[in-house]
Amino acid sequence: MRRVDELREQTVWKSDPHTQVKHLVYRHYLQCWMGKILQTFPEATIVDAFAGPGVYTDGPPGSPIVVAKTFLEHTAYRRFNKLNLVCLEERTDRVEELRRQFAKLSPSPQLNISVQAPGVFAEQQPRLSTLAHRGRAETPVLWLIDPFDLKSAPFSLIRRCLADPRDEVLFTLFTNELHRFCQRENFDKTMTPYFGGTHWQSAVPERRGRREAFATAYQQGLKDQELFTGGFGIKVSNQSARYHLVLATHSEAGLKCWAPVTWKLDHYSGQGASAETAGALSLFDEASVVDRLDVALRAYAGTAQRWETLSSQAARLNHMDKHLRQVLDKLAAQGLAFRVDPVRARTAWPEGCTVRFYAPEDVADEAS
């Protein structure tokens, strides 16, 4: 049976390597998100909008169970406040199976699991938002949106999930389908609502990098909404990404959780992982590509910048403070970056320090 037929006809279907990579991203991001959010706020909510049956025929757990187990097995679990896990699935048979899977977990007074009656996410989103926020706009809500097709999650729906100040979305972007079908007649009627505009057209002329260009265009649409965003490609072996995971958040703190995940799974560029390599979690590669960060820091020539500003710039470019220090070391060796405050410190670039930047011409031989 073809994969598409399995998804359409069967209650439970077999897992695939790409799903496991995606769930690995979920787990790593949730480790950080839970560690920060659930020790800061009295409660928070995760909404799995396309929850599925919670298990695969060959044994691995589905995304709702991945979320619950990440919570229950977290090293900081005993210090956590309340987490509400809200799950929506369209099919009755899958809802019943999901409830059976949750029943196998040990109950926790800190984890409130709510499997909703079968429903379509586009129709149920306003009600779910009210349920998730518990009457408080400040309640952090993380939406996991992993639909089966493009039409189930138009940009307008994603934007509604980001209506409140502590909403975040982790969204599966079908870049392979976009690449394959973008030039079909009348497909623009699907593409434009999916992207929330016609900016997707800029990616069409691309050939080899069209999938990545679609991901970039989608993220630009989020940035235009004054949101912070990160992306990560889920690849098939050494080929182009089958789809991308896109994070959208109101807070730069979300990027601080996102960057370590992407660099952990892709040691070279932090932008995509294959099913073959994602499980090899080694230390971060010291030779990681940091060219964009290098260029960004050089642009500060003639100014002094606080660490907070530099760390923020690194996060926006999907880099960690580790990479920031790496580039600062390089610039310092060239005489282009100096720590001016504090004068004494145990490390070269401590948090809270001030760094002054210079241009190459400032350190040329003829300079006085």
Score class of each variant (00 low, 15 high):
116 Q>S: 02
42 P>A: 01
170 L>E: 00
268 Y>H: 15
196 G>L: 09
255 L>C: 01
73 E>L: 11
144 L>I: 09
221 G>T: 06
244 H>V: 06
190 T>W: 05
160 R>N: 07
276 E>R: 12
323 H>A: 06
156 S>E: 14
360 P>N: 02
260 P>T: 10
341 D>F: 05
204 V>F: 02
245 L>I: 15
41 F>D: 08
173 L>T: 01
188 D>P: 00
303 T>R: 13
166 R>N: 10
282 S>Q: 14
114 S>I: 13
208 R>W: 11
40 T>R: 10
325 R>K: 13
51 A>G: 02
339 R>D: 07
368 S>T: 12
242 R>G: 00
178 L>E: 06
252 E>S: 13
92 T>E: 15
139 T>K: 03
76 A>K: 11
263 W>A: 01
279 G>L: 10
2 R>H: 14
325 R>L: 04
4 V>R: 14
211 R>D: 10
153 A>H: 04
293 L>G: 03
108 S>W: 08
204 V>K: 01
124 Q>T: 09
257 C>Q: 05
26 Y>M: 07
56 Y>E: 10
106 S>N: 09
314 A>R: 05
160 R>W: 00
356 R>A: 10
292 R>L: 12
176 N>I: 03
76 A>N: 08
346 R>F: 15
209 G>I: 10
256 K>R: 14
61 P>V: 02
293 L>P: 01
120 V>G: 00
292 R>A: 15
187 F>G: 06
346 R>L: 14
261 V>E: 02
258 W>Q: 07
108 S>M: 13
202 S>G: 06
265 L>F: 03
28 H>E: 14
158 I>S: 00
316 R>Y: 02
103 A>T: 11
61 P>R: 02
282 S>V: 15
237 S>W: 04
103 A>D: 04
279 G>S: 01
318 N>K: 06
89 E>I: 13
53 P>E: 04
64 P>I: 06
152 S>T: 12
32 C>D: 09
237 S>R: 08
23 H>K: 14
98 L>Q: 01
341 D>V: 02
165 P>N: 10
106 S>D: 12
144 L>D: 00
288 S>N: 09
121 F>M: 11
358 Y>N: 07
217 A>P: 02
181 F>L: 12
353 C>H: 08
337 A>C: 07
148 F>R: 07
290 V>T: 15
305 Q>P: 01
5 D>L: 14
58 D>F: 09
256 K>H: 13
265 L>W: 01
347 T>G: 07
61 P>K: 09
315 A>P: 00
47 V>F: 00
128 L>N: 07
234 I>R: 03
169 V>I: 09
364 A>Y: 04
164 D>H: 12
35 G>F: 01
153 A>W: 01
100 R>C: 12
273 A>V: 15
358 Y>I: 11
77 Y>H: 15
300 Y>V: 06
332 A>K: 11
157 L>R: 01
328 L>W: 09
53 P>D: 05
4 V>P: 03
150 L>W: 00
132 A>D: 06
95 V>I: 06
11 T>I: 14
96 E>I: 14
351 E>H: 06
234 I>A: 11
25 V>S: 00
213 A>G: 04
46 I>K: 04
284 F>P: 14
94 R>I: 12
